[in-house]
């Protein structure tokens, strides 16, 4: 498997330009900015409760932090899969892939260029959202910043995993099915990770998926564990970190190998 560095640079630049032309991207930007405003207001809230006649102020920043980060992580990861789900496929449908591949470049170079193109947009959005959340939670809530940085890194790794898997699925499945798989997969993994963290017993396929699948929410919760003092089951940090890295690298390599080997003529529009 060969990757040519200079063509990769040109193809990635082109893929970013193509991604920026998509109608989805302005929508993502608007949603991201709105999310930042939402974070701005949510992270400044406190609860005044009366305990045995004594008014007390409850610090909700830890809870809000976990909730906000979890939601943003799920949204960012799903977005990465959504953007990648047709970024390679569409150039076969419009016919331009045939012309790129008539040039002396390897197939993995084209696939990696398209993946990087979509990832630059989706990782940018993820960084904006998770970085913004970290900033507000740290400044407003006084929560330590380092866990948020680790959590952001784990989100970025999950974005790579989901984008590579979605791009690979798009080579075999119709766009709608690939998109549904992205949302279904991210949602299912998030629910399983959350259920396991809450101490709910998982059995059969659910157990296998939680234990060995991409730790989408487990990695975020493990990284943010210094933010909470009680509650969820302890998540082994190194296990989820290793699994996040393995899934990101594994899905990336798998995409490149599959794209290198499959018959591409069936992807072309007839």
């Amino acid at each position: 498997m060969r990757i040519e560095s200079r063509p990769l640079r040109w193809l990635t630049t082109q893929a970013v330009r193509d991604a920026s032309q998509r109608r989805l991207v302005p929508a993502v930007l608007v949603i991201s900015v709105l999310s930042l405003f939402m974070m701005d207001s949510c992270t400044s809230c406190n609860a005044n409760v009366v305990v045995q006649g004594e008014p007390q102020t409850m610090d909700l920043s830890s809870l809000a932090g976990l909730f906000t980060f979890g939601l943003l992580a799920i949204w960012s990861i799903a977005l990465a899969g959504l953007l990648a789900s047709d970024h390679l496929r569409e150039i076969f449908e419009d016919g331009s892939a045939t012309l790129w591949l008539a040039r002396p470049i390897s197939r993995p170079t084209l696939a990696l260029g398209r993946l990087l193109g979509s990832l630059i947009v989706s990782l940018g959005a993820a960084l904006l959202l998770c970085g913004g959340a970290s900033f507000f939670l740290s400044i407003r809530g006084g929560l330590p910043l380092l866990p948020a940085i680790w959590a952001t890194l784990s989100v970025l790794l999950s974005c790579v995993t989901m984008a590579a898997l979605a791009m690979m699925a798009s080579l075999f499945l119709p766009r709608l099915v690939a998109v549904l798989m992205v949302f279904g997969g991210v949602g299912l993994m998030a629910v399983l990770n959350l259920a396991a963290a809450a101490g709910r017993p998982l059995a059969g396929l659910y157990y296998v998926l939680h234990q060995f699948g991409p730790p989408i929410l487990s990695a975020v919760m493990a990284a943010l564990s210094p933010w909470w003092t009680t509650g969820p089951v302890e998540i082994p940090l190194w296990d989820v970190a290793l699994r996040s890295i393995s899934w990101a690298l594994g899905s990336l390599v798998l995409l490149l190998i599959v794209f290198d080997q499959i018959e591409l003529s069936r992807l072309e529009a007839r």
Partner: peptide, 29 residues
């Protein structure tokens, strides 16, 4: 595919690109 030029029957061109930018990219590739 070194030194290969290909013109397909169904020509897929990126509609948002300028002519010279598109040809320039092909020149690089």
């Amino acid at each position: 595919r070194q030194g290969l030029g290909y013109l397909p029957e169904r020509l897929g061109l990126p509609t948002h690109m300028a002519v010279e930018g598109y040809i320039g990219l092909h020149a690089l590739l």
